[in-house]
Design a protein around this nucleic acid. Sequence first.
DNA 1: GCTATAATGAGAATCATTATCACTCACGAT
DNA 2: ATCGTGAGTGATAATGATTCTCATTATAGC
Lengths: 144, 144
Amino acid sequence: MSIEDKDVEERLSQSGVRYTGGRRQVVAALQGADGPMSAAELHQGLAGKVPVSSVYRTLAVLEEAGVVQPHHSAKGITRYEIAEWLAGHHHHLVCISCGSVEDIELPRSLESQLERLVGEVSEMSAFSASGHSLEVDGLCTRCA
Amino acid sequence: MSIEDKDVEERLSQSGVRYTGGRRQVVAALQGADGPMSAAELHQGLAGKVPVSSVYRTLAVLEEAGVVQPHHSAKGITRYEIAEWLAGHHHHLVCISCGSVEDIELPRSLESQLERLVGEVSEMSAFSASGHSLEVDGLCTRCA
DNA sequence: GCTATAATGAGAATCATTATCACTCACGAT
DNA sequence: ATCGTGAGTGATAATGATTCTCATTATAGC
């Protein structure tokens, strides 16, 4: 059981739902991935151990409980990742060729620059910002 | 005919496709919008003047020609916006309540800070960056 | 162990998107 | 100006992702 699993368990119980085997597997798969995953990718990755309908339901439950969050990616598929309060704040490198998405954490100095910047944007736009994410588009190492 | 229309026409003719009435309407609708639009939203906005199948085909053609680019899908839908070389570089305010997406342009000083930051990210990650987009999540004025 | 309730699995239903195909329209050769 | 060819269109069928339904199974509390 990974460090975070305790937190997930607690959060789910607060939401009044159980942390069952299938749900654990989905969470584990998301933890193991190095970027957001779609339901189909998770189903694949779990080698059919969790049926596709359960993957979707599980993702909905986990999202509701704030354990995962959807990452709105292109091409009509929704990918999910472990919520930031569990996985830490990070940004995304998106490959414009193969569509893969990789997480990246910024060193503190860059992150704080970015936060200051987002603060200014929020002020000038009358938009009450609660979070941010930087998406960098380009070619991943495989596609380069 | 808006300023950009000439550019669109040229780009399409370079791709060997025609800039027909339906395609013009889709481009115009995207120009008029203040954020990315899905095929369904465009179809709606055009009051059925362009059938839904044509909207999809048109978006595919326009994407192929580099006139529009897919962006920010929420909940399994893909939205498109005018490509940056036509519309100018901008970022997105994403409402976490209603899912709407609004474009925002950064003042030069902030934008250049951001570019420097992306440059550093690119270097430290062995990822050849070609573009970037800042997503600010929060509540839009309607949902606040 | 028994019961009430949550969770699961399989498949049907739905929604977004893509492919198909007969038909129309626009451009270039005549 | 007319004809023929290929691009474009519109309606609809097919696909793929996601959600819903419901009968069955597992779990927590008694």
